[in-house]
Amino acid sequence: MDDSDLAGSLLAALPVSGVSVATMGGLLRTETVSASDPVAARLDELQFDLGEGPCWDAVSERRPVFEANLRIAPRRTWPAFSRALLDHDAVEALHAFPLLLGPLALGAMELWCDRPGDLPDASARRASALAGQVSRHLLRRAVSDVADDQAEEVRVDKYSRRRIHQATGIVLAQADLSAEDAELLLQGHAFAQGVPMREVADAVLDGRLSFASGADGIVER
Rank of each mutant, 00 (worst) to 15 (best):
E220W: 12
M109P: 05
G26Y: 07
A151T: 05
E220Q: 12
A212L: 08
G188C: 04
S123Y: 01
I164S: 02
S144G: 01
G214C: 03
L27R: 15
D216T: 11
V21D: 09
R83M: 12
L119Q: 07
G18I: 08
L101A: 01
R75V: 15
R29E: 14
Q187H: 13
L205T: 06
A167N: 02
Q150N: 10
A167P: 04
R76K: 11
A7M: 11
S20P: 05
S60T: 14
V195L: 04
L100N: 14
D114L: 02
L50A: 08
A124N: 06
L100M: 14
F81K: 02
V156R: 12
H165P: 04
R63E: 15
R83A: 14
E31T: 13
D49C: 13
S82M: 12
S82Q: 08
L46F: 09
E31W: 11
A13S: 13
L205H: 00
E31H: 14
S34N: 04
P120W: 03
Y159S: 14
R140L: 10
A167G: 03
V33Q: 07
R155H: 07
G117Q: 03
R42W: 12
G53K: 01
F81W: 14
G51E: 06
A84Y: 10
S82P: 12
W78P: 06
S4T: 13
R140S: 08
Q187F: 11
R71N: 02
R162S: 13
A41F: 09
A151K: 11
A80F: 07
E52L: 02
S144L: 13
A129K: 10
R75H: 13
L138K: 03
S9T: 10
D148N: 09
L43K: 06
D145W: 09
A84T: 09
G102C: 00
A175R: 03
N69A: 09
A13L: 14
L186Q: 03
V195Q: 04
R161T: 13
L10W: 11
F81R: 11
R42M: 10
A124H: 10
A190M: 04
P120D: 00
A190T: 02
A151Y: 07
N69T: 05
L86D: 15
S34C: 00
R126I: 15
R115V: 15
D3E: 11
F97G: 00
G207S: 04
L27A: 11
E52G: 04
G169Y: 00
D148V: 15
L99T: 05
A201D: 05
T32E: 10
R62P: 04
Q47D: 04
V219Y: 00
P79I: 05
L101I: 14
P74D: 05
V134D: 06
R75W: 11
A201F: 03
R221T: 14
C113N: 13
R76P: 05
A192N: 05
P64Y: 01
L184Q: 03
Q150P: 04
S160D: 15
A129L: 09
D145T: 13
L130W: 06
I218S: 09
P196Y: 01
S144D: 10
G26H: 14
P116E: 10
A179W: 01
S82H: 14
S17G: 02
A13P: 02
L11N: 00
V134C: 02
V171R: 00
